[in-house]
Amino acid sequence: MKETILIIEDNVEMCENIADILKLENYEVISANNGKEGVKLAISAMPDLILCDIMMPELDGYGVLHVLGKHPNTSDTPFIFLTAKSEKADFRKGMSLGADDYLVKPFDGMELLKTLEIRLKRNRKLKTAFENEPKDLGEFFDRAKELNGFENLSDKKLVKQFKKKDFVFREGQSAGTLYYLVEGEIKTNRINEDGKEFITGIFTPGQYIGYVALLRNIPYTENAVAMTDITVEMIVKEDFHLLVNTNRLVAAKFMKILSNNVLEAEKRLVELAYQSVRQRVASVILTLCDREPSQNKDAGTINMLRRDIAGIVGTALETLNRTITDFREEGLIEIIEGGVRIVDRRGLERTSR
């Protein structure tokens, strides 16, 4: 499959010359003659790489990179500046915004093709490794270390097991590690002055825990507790910052995770403010069921302690027990050892609304 290159260049002759060279190398080429059109085309077409002039009317190259760096469709797309300026200040400004490379005009065809080849190869390797299954996090590090800029990644593969109920980290503890869950389940929570638990998240294999504190460079703001026996792989703070600050693909990955978590947190706050306990319990049961492994989804089974469900709902255990009993008497669920099983999903969905 051909890789697509977007050229954003207001000099028509220059744009056509670059396009001719790329087409000879079997690239698919699309182009725009100003920054605004380039942004629209990049978001809609989602090219594999963007070549962008700096000095353009309407929206310059810095503005293009700023906009595309914040859009989910293009935040991890390799971005190379084309510029007639060679002053160090221009290079620093572009790289600080997240540019992957520079080509200073005039450049020859071989220089152009070599630069594209290096950036596309690097991005393919990282993307393949970073999006692999949980067992391949070590492979991601191995591949990343082969690429320029990542030679200083740690050689240590840090793996650790925790027993059920063990703390992975505690609120207020200095944040020095990113945790990647390989096996088991983790909950994050906060405890108020009265000792009441509020569960802020449930994590399953393939998810990262602790990145917010690392990104903000602050202590952990919540506890992380093993709900089952778990296995985690750990990325030390220095490696995490090297990955995030050196590669836009990695940074974009964590920004997307963070954005999704913010949206989920906002949704939960709205539910706490406006929904009844019955609605919240029904919603949480449905959500937890959908997060269970596929073999349990069909059966609609949730294996979780009631106090943990109460912590997610944000209500007292006694209130949850009464609501669970009501749902059972209404034929919506049945109570099983260690959890509940959904009997009438549609009825539970109506209750949650």
Rank of each mutant, 00 (worst) to 15 (best):
Y62K: 02
G94C: 09
P47E: 02
D76Q: 08
P78L: 12
L59A: 04
F107I: 07
V64A: 05
K93Y: 06
K85S: 07
L65F: 05
S86W: 00
D53M: 06
T74D: 04
L68W: 02
L103D: 10
S96I: 03
P72H: 10
L82A: 03
Y62R: 02
L49E: 10
F91I: 07
D100T: 01
F81Q: 05
L65I: 09
D60W: 04
L51H: 13
G94K: 13
L49H: 10
P57M: 03
D60C: 06
L51C: 10
F107E: 06
M95Y: 14
L49G: 08
D101K: 13
T74Y: 05
P78C: 11
M46W: 00
A99C: 10
D76H: 10
L49P: 11
K88H: 04
L68V: 01
F107A: 06
D48M: 03
A84E: 04
S96T: 13
L97H: 08
G94Q: 09
M55K: 15
T77Q: 14
S96N: 15
L49R: 09
H71I: 01
D60V: 00
P78Y: 10
K70C: 02
A84T: 09
P72K: 14
F81S: 04
G94I: 07
H71D: 15
T74E: 06
E58G: 02
L103K: 12
L59H: 03
E87T: 13
P57V: 00
T77R: 12
F81T: 02
L59F: 01
D90I: 07
D90H: 11
P106S: 03
M56A: 08
V104K: 14
S96M: 11
L97R: 08
A84Y: 04
P47K: 15
D76L: 00
T83F: 03
D90G: 06
P78W: 08
P78V: 01
P57I: 00
L51N: 12
V67Q: 15
M56V: 09
S75R: 07
L103R: 12
C52V: 01
L59V: 00
K70D: 04
S75Y: 02
E58K: 08
L59R: 11
V64E: 13
I80C: 07
Y62I: 00
S75F: 01
R92T: 11
I50A: 09
L82E: 04
I50D: 08
K85V: 08
Y62H: 09
A89N: 09
D60F: 03
E58I: 01
T77S: 13
V67G: 02
R92M: 14
H71M: 06
M55T: 13
S96H: 10
P72V: 05
P57K: 13
K70M: 05
K70G: 04
L82N: 07
D101E: 14
F81E: 01
F79R: 00
S86N: 14
E87N: 15
R92I: 12
G98F: 04
P57T: 02
H66R: 15
E87A: 10
E58L: 05
M55W: 04
A99F: 05
D53Q: 06
G98P: 10
L51P: 14
L103A: 08
T83W: 06
A89T: 15
T77M: 14
D101S: 11
S96G: 13
F81D: 01
L51F: 12
F91K: 12
V104M: 14
K93S: 07
S75D: 10
D101M: 05
R92N: 15
F107P: 12
C52H: 07
D76P: 02
L103T: 07
